[in-house]
């Protein structure tokens, strides 16, 4: 057992997904089963092995020139907005803990 239901609740809070008690219980079973299958990763001797974060070997320094290109019009930007006011995206009250430390 890698994760308790309490752990799973913490993970869900961090991932901003509201789970019911029943969902937390089921998720705990699923995650523990999946994590069990990740064991091979922990059994390797990886001393001296560099990680590969980017699959194309040697790819580096990809940059663009500092030239303006037109993007969205104001209406395009807000076209999919669930709620808006005064040309801005509207969200309900942000409580102090809604985000990380800014």
């Amino acid at each position: 057992m890698y994760l308790t239901e309490k752990d799973v609740r913490g993970i869900a809070t961090y991932a901003r997904i509201g789970l019911s008690d029943a969902e937390v219980a089921a998720m705990t079973v699923d995650l523990n089963s999946i994590i069990e299958n990740l064991k091979p990763i922990t059994e390797y001797d990886l001393r001296g092995v560099e990680p590969t974060f980017h699959p194309i070997a040697g790819l580096s320094n990809v940059m663009r020139e500092d030239r303006v290109r037109s993007g969205f019009t104001h209406d395009e930007a807000l076209a999919n907005a669930p709620a808006e006011q005064d040309g801005q995206f509207l969200v309900p009250s942000i409580l102090g803990d809604a985000g990380g430390d800014r």
Partner: peptide
Amino acid sequence: RISGATYSLLDY
């Protein structure tokens, strides 16, 4: 301020 606000508007 953030506390007491009823909603917030976002400009990107």
